[in-house]
């Protein structure tokens, strides 16, 4: 850290004094950080920040990045079979966007001091987490609709408040991502709408996909508030702006409206608006399943990681070649200059 640059350092610092100076730096840093939080301002990469803040952000942003990258797979699975050329183009553009979004997020995480290579290694080694929803299979074309409408819909609910996250690079990455993703949910909605207005077989396909993706999408907001120990701290740090349950409830409310337009139903007979709390409520979710999938015991966990590992391994020689070429070129430039 550049923290000591502007502090006057004694010429011949005695050891105890140095320790004291260090304590003072920490205290100053903490005070500055607290003021930034109180003002709802932004922390930037080279600012002093509490170690736990850095760690929490690094975990959250890298998990978010991994989710984008792993999340490409269930949809990429259908690019080759998209049933019209227009849908093929849309889906290709969407999956490609997700690569871009992963990349923006890895870049934001890198400003916290970890290399993308390291994060990728952690992911492939199974040491990192990503959104558990991408461990479910995309079985029919209607899943492209349900993923866009429900999964991206839930993601957008989560992400829009993150545009104001207290960590500058994260917030800025989210602004770009949210702008780009504005078409993702709509294209999913339109896939479902088209199917719902299509043949009985198509409508059945759409309903079946909504049935399968509804609960996992609701669980994307994370465990219930009383079972989410890190939430409180994240909210104090202005990383998280709304609680898991709050966002989930808002999302359910939006889906209730939209599913009517689709002419489909949500697979949840207990959805209702609670007049007392003014909040939308939903039926019970299977959190045991959520934990199982998160722990690696979902339908596609090993398949998803293997695919990522293979792409990374297969590309190693290409990355090495480009690096070697750049090195040779810069050596030549230097020789020329000398």
């Amino acid at each position: 850290m550049a923290a000591q640059n502007l502090q006057s350092v004694p010429d011949q610092p005695a050891a105890p004094q140095e320790a004291k100076a260090q304590d003072q730096l920490e205290a100053d840093g903490q005070a500055y950080f607290d003021r930034v939080m109180a003002d709802d301002s932004r922390i930037e990469p080279k600012d002093w920040m509490p170690a736990a803040y850095r760690k929490t952000l690094l975990r959250q942003i890298s998990q978010h990045a991994h989710s984008e990258i792993i999340g490409m797979q269930p949809e990429a699975n259908w690019i080759s079979r998209a049933p019209s050329l227009k849908r093929k183009a849309i889906l290709m553009a969407k999956v490609q966007d997700e690569a871009g979004h992963g990349l923006y997020l890895y870049s934001a995480a890198e400003t916290l001091g970890q290399s993308r290579d390291q994060m990728m290694d952690d992911l492939i080694a199974g040491k990192a987490r990503y959104s558990s929803i991408f461990n479910y299979p995309a079985l029919t074309w209607a899943d492209m609709g349900a993923i866009g409408w429900l999964v991206d819909g839930a993601a957008i609910c989560n992400q829009v408040p993150l545009c104001r996250a207290s960590y500058g690079p994260y917030g800025r990455a989210m602004v770009r991502i949210c702008k780009e993703e504005s078409f993702h949910q709509r294209q999913g909605f339109e896939i479902l709408l088209e199917l719902s207005n299509g043949t009985p077989a198509q409508k059945q396909m759409a309903q079946d996909a909504v049935n399968r993706w509804y609960a996992p999408a609701l669980m994307m907001f994370g465990p219930p508030d009383d079972d989410s120990p890190n939430s409180k701290q994240s909210m104090a740090w202005n990383i998280k702006r709304f609680s898991n349950d709050e966002l989930r409830s808002r999302f359910v409310g939006m889906m209730v409206e939209q599913v009517r337009v689709l002419g489909l139903t949500l697979p949840d007979s207990e959805v209702r608006f609670n007049e007392d709390t003014k909040k939308w409520e939903h039926g019970p979710l299977d959190w045991d399943e959520f934990k199982e999938v998160l722990a690696g015991r979902g339908p596609c966990n090993s398949q998803r990681l293997e695919r990522r590992r293979q792409a990374h391994d297969d590309g190693a020689w290409v990355r090495e070649a480009a690096a070697a070429y750049a090195h040779k070129k810069s050596m030549k430039t230097k020789e020329f200059a000398a």
Partner: peptide, 23 residues
Amino acid sequence: AGSLHAPDAAMALRNARDLYTRR
């Protein structure tokens, strides 16, 4: 606009074009 990884300046420019000017 953001950052990216590239082996050299020529590829960095192209990657930037592909990544940050798609719209």
